[in-house]
Computed example of a mutant assay.
Amino acid sequence: MMERIVLASQSPRRKQLLEWAEIPFDIIVRPTDETFPDHLPIEDIPVHIARHKAEVVQEELSHDLLVLAADTVVVLGNQIIGKPVDREDAIRILMQLSGQSHQVITGVVMRKGKHELAFSDITSVEFHPLTYEQVSFYVDKYQPFDKAGAYAIQEWIGVVGIKSIEGDFYNVMGLPVSRVVKALTNWVF
């Protein structure tokens, strides 16, 4: 039986993935600054943000509790595609991703006491060319305004729009859960 952990994330998808993996957890979230230094390589940005989320939550807790935090970014070329600010922005983002390959990078940080384990996982996703009608249908029906890249792979757009995926599907949902389980199982303090 795995020990109970603290998930420092309000993402319903991360919550669902931990439930599917049957990891016992509590959710504690605190407001955190998600900015990062300009010089940071793109693949290090989600780890930097996840580390900050974990540290803020860990400050309030007993240090013998394990805190898990994660952050996901979508990258097209060398540009981070964030969460859309409104309907038009979501449509613009998805039209930009249409017919293109992009990377989804999730940074994971686990902290217990003074010990930390941090890593990132990268998945490449390629969309079929999408029509404006498909994109606007998806945005209007699913309202992906809280999602990096303006989409959730497990929703309609992923089912009809994804041409290929290379890497961990669940990483695109927000947590490379099999890698997290392996780390939790093998991590010695």
Score class of each variant (00 low, 15 high):
138 Y>M: 10
81 I>Y: 01
129 P>W: 05
125 V>P: 04
15 K>N: 13
57 V>G: 08
179 R>E: 05
26 D>Y: 01
35 T>Q: 10
178 S>T: 15
54 A>T: 05
107 G>P: 11
98 S>F: 08
42 I>R: 02
140 D>M: 09
5 I>P: 08
176 P>R: 06
4 R>F: 00
45 I>Y: 02
92 R>I: 00
72 T>M: 06
89 D>C: 01
140 D>N: 15
177 V>R: 05
49 I>L: 08
112 K>A: 02
43 E>C: 03
112 K>E: 14
29 V>G: 06
5 I>W: 09
153 I>V: 14
104 V>I: 09
47 V>S: 08
187 W>Q: 02
48 H>W: 14
119 F>V: 02
52 H>V: 11
43 E>Q: 12
117 L>G: 00
43 E>D: 13
160 V>C: 06
65 L>W: 14
169 F>R: 14
180 V>R: 05
147 K>A: 04
87 R>T: 09
28 I>S: 00
152 A>I: 00
89 D>M: 03
69 A>L: 13
124 S>L: 11
111 R>F: 00
173 M>I: 14
122 I>Q: 11
73 V>A: 01
11 S>D: 12
125 V>C: 04
155 E>L: 08
128 H>C: 07
119 F>M: 05
73 V>M: 13
112 K>Y: 02
68 L>D: 11
9 S>W: 12
172 V>F: 13
77 G>N: 09
79 Q>K: 15
124 S>Q: 14
21 A>N: 06
51 R>E: 03
88 E>C: 00
47 V>C: 09
80 I>G: 05
125 V>G: 01
88 E>R: 12
34 E>P: 11
14 R>W: 13
79 Q>T: 15
158 G>K: 08
165 I>G: 03
143 Q>H: 12
171 N>T: 07
94 L>Q: 08
125 V>M: 03
45 I>K: 04
100 Q>C: 07
153 I>H: 06
19 E>P: 00
21 A>E: 01
148 A>K: 12
65 L>H: 14
14 R>L: 08
105 I>H: 00
101 S>K: 15
33 D>C: 12
14 R>M: 11
62 S>K: 14
9 S>N: 12
19 E>W: 00
108 V>L: 10
61 L>V: 07
69 A>N: 12
36 F>V: 03
140 D>H: 07
75 V>G: 04
1 M>F: 11
109 V>W: 08
76 L>Y: 10
16 Q>T: 11
70 A>H: 08
30 R>W: 01
131 T>E: 08
15 K>T: 15
6 V>R: 06
144 P>H: 10
175 L>G: 04
